[in-house]
């Protein structure tokens, strides 16, 4: 079943528009042989520069468009599709504008910031298309809040089993009741989440006898369930973090790009 996403929106409408525009621009660029050589200062260079600047301003306007819920300027999905594909297209438009000349100056800085913005944008787009589906595939549709509550409940239930038990029993509890202390690293590196080491558990269980043994088995069952939930929470938190983390570079880099772009345009007009 064909399903529209922001990338294949209307059968890649914006990808084709961007690709066609790029091919046309590339052909014009190759054909053009301006007096004094190709540069950002030639007629075509100026045209591509203006096009790229307008493009950047439009791409940044997406930040406003996505917040205006009552806008009638096309669907948000369409805007996002255009945002992604036109943004990627700028990677080539700007070198065509500059005739592929780069240096250690504010002009190239603007390009570097633009590349940084676009690459993080691509990272974000990839994250969205690969990870966002995994958010909804949550166990039984339970929400994170329920999982959090359940984790604490399980810890409490296991803890209650410790009442009046020997130190060896409590040691078993401590071994398998890893603290629930979410952190940035905990979130981004889910693979480090602890699991119940079955072998160690069996060995420690063998030292307990009678009622304590029975309770310990029940406790480990509870704690194993709890760790499963913790891993699930961590995985969900990681996905949500990855869906946001790229924005921490994408958006600030785009604002820095705006300043660099103003500096670029100002300096070019300043030194004519």
């Amino acid at each position: 079943m064909h399903q529209d996403t922001f990338l294949n929106y209307r059968r890649f409408k914006w990808l084709w528009i961007t690709a066609a525009a790029l091919v046309a621009m590339l052909v014009l660029y190759v054909v053009d042989n301006p007096l004094g050589g190709r540069s950002g200062g030639s007629l075509l260079g100026y045209a591509y520069g203006i096009l790229a600047a307008v493009g950047i301003v439009w791409l940044m306007a997406f930040g406003l468009r996505k917040r205006s819920y009552h806008s009638s300027l096309g669907t948000l999905e369409g805007w996002l599709a255009a945002h992604v594909w036109i943004g990627i297209g700028l990677l080539l438009v700007v070198p065509l504008h500059a005739a592929f000349s780069f240096g250690c100056n504010v002009h190239t800085l603007a390009y570097v910031l633009m590349v940084l913005t676009i690459l993080t944008g691509i990272w974000g787009a990839v994250n969205y298309s690969t990870l966002s589906g995994r958010i909804t595939a949550h166990r039984g549709g339970a929400k994170d809040e329920l999982l959090v509550e359940r984790v604490d409940e399980l810890q409490q239930q296991a803890g209650q089993l410790c009442a009046g038990k020997s130190d060896a029993f409590v040691r078993l509890y401590n071994e398998f009741c890893a603290p629930f202390k979410p952190s940035l690293a905990w979130m981004l590196f889910t693979s480090r989440q602890p699991v119940v080491d079955k072998k160690a558990a069996r060995e420690m269980l063998s030292r307990l006898e009678g009622a304590e043994h029975t309770d310990a088995v029940a406790m480990i069952g509870l704690l194993d369930q709890r760790l499963d939930m913790l891993r699930e929470l961590a995985e969900q938190a990681r996905i949500k973090a990855l869906l946001k983390l790229w924005l921490y570079v994408h958006v600030p880099a785009s604002f820095a790009l705006c300043v660099a772009l103003i500096a670029h345009i100002l300096s070019v007009l300043y030194f004519r």
């Binding site: 959090v148 979410p182 929470l233 946001k244 600030p252 820095a256």
Partner: peptide, 20 residues
């Protein structure tokens, strides 16, 4: 809150303003 990325990082707005 502890499961949110935002609670560990300065806001995107703040980073943007400082960088700009």
């Amino acid at each position: 809150r502890q499961l949110q990325l935002d609670s560990y990082l300065p806001s995107i707005k703040a980073i943007s303003i400082v960088l700009a």
